[in-house]
Design a protein around this nucleic acid. Sequence first.
DNA 1: GTGGTCTAGACCACG
DNA 2: GTGGTCTAGACCACC
Lengths: 122, 122, 122, 122
Amino acid sequence: MFFNINPSNGVPVYEQVSRQILFAVAAGGLASGEMIPSVREMARQLAINPNTVARAYRQLQDQEILETVRGEGMAVAKGARAKCKSVRTKLIREQIAQVLRAARQSQLSDEEIRKMVESELK
Amino acid sequence: MFFNINPSNGVPVYEQVSRQILFAVAAGGLASGEMIPSVREMARQLAINPNTVARAYRQLQDQEILETVRGEGMAVAKGARAKCKSVRTKLIREQIAQVLRAARQSQLSDEEIRKMVESELK
Amino acid sequence: MFFNINPSNGVPVYEQVSRQILFAVAAGGLASGEMIPSVREMARQLAINPNTVARAYRQLQDQEILETVRGEGMAVAKGARAKCKSVRTKLIREQIAQVLRAARQSQLSDEEIRKMVESELK
Amino acid sequence: MFFNINPSNGVPVYEQVSRQILFAVAAGGLASGEMIPSVREMARQLAINPNTVARAYRQLQDQEILETVRGEGMAVAKGARAKCKSVRTKLIREQIAQVLRAARQSQLSDEEIRKMVESELK
DNA sequence: GTGGTCTAGACCACG
DNA sequence: GTGGTCTAGACCACC
């Protein structure tokens, strides 16, 4: 697992964790049925509190992306990849929509917006 | 003033206020030298706490977009419009950059991103 | 608020809290827009830890039954009543289905099951 | 033995095992005196931990539903069938009572409850 | 004052 | 060993 956590980032740590797992599943780096590192192990690797990891895992469990295997740990649920892909797309889409709304509200023309996007895509 | 405030929105209320004033100036709806409603009046109209309005005004004052007129209240500063336009553009630019970073981190290709932007621009 | 918490009940405390709020909304005891007691206040009344209350509230917020009003507290979201009613019914329905499945799996006839239900309804 | 074990099910695995044996005896699928598979054999078949099977067997032994036969293994005890039937009934009865309590607490009328039960009985 | 996040440490049932 | 729950106490931004 190669996760980067930035604790002073505005984005909550548990969100960073769950999002990176979600993206990893969406990208195929974590397959259905595969076990993920235990709460304690992940906490140790990321140098954060186990409760924070547990919260991230719980969030994914609520979305049926992870499932607990009693006494063993947590595994990627079946059908998780499709779900993660769609969630990922929806997340990005929402963010884009939000920015574009702000941009328009501030009277930028579509052409100006496009130019900004292109210049940021480099 | 036709501002919409949404207190259960994620965005701090004082931010919503100051941003909407900033955008109004940038768009020419508020001209240099024009007086803006008093803290109390604005608070009454928006049904929010006067402290919150004061904070928004203070923030704009720090950016030299508003200025106090002794004994009268606050007015839009000289040169505010140009400043607001540039701030507005920088704000939007930053937001776009941030979203694009997130999109890339989640493994979307530039082409997919462009398509999403276009579809959201409708 | 007249909530009963039983900490040694099998059912997690945060679940008891969120369920009782959900039922109160479903029953009309808490109307949309109404503020609910603050995390700290509720924790004090129930003599439990604020974090536990916060978890219950968060759970309801994820279901869009509660919403946070910045700096003020949490309020019952609009449309919450209908949602609570349907969730409540679904919860009960699931439990009933589960029990009936168990009953049938253990070879009880429908008639015997009906008799048990009636006798328990007293 | 045709048992289904689901480790990500909420119900402890050892409970699932012991309950399914209990039901099998109650239903007559396992007669008094009949040997049941050894701990190891059962564990192999169900692909679970032998300790878990042992715990299930021990539980049934405590209820005098299974008994050890020196040097041979475990067998269904004399009088087990009647006992299993009564345990089974008690279990179901308790579950029904519990659900009905929950249903009432959530303000459903007896009539509504009956309707739900009937609809779930199909 | 409010909720939100994070840490720390404890206890539990389960396998 | 695993996850789940709960407590306690700290810090933050916001109103």
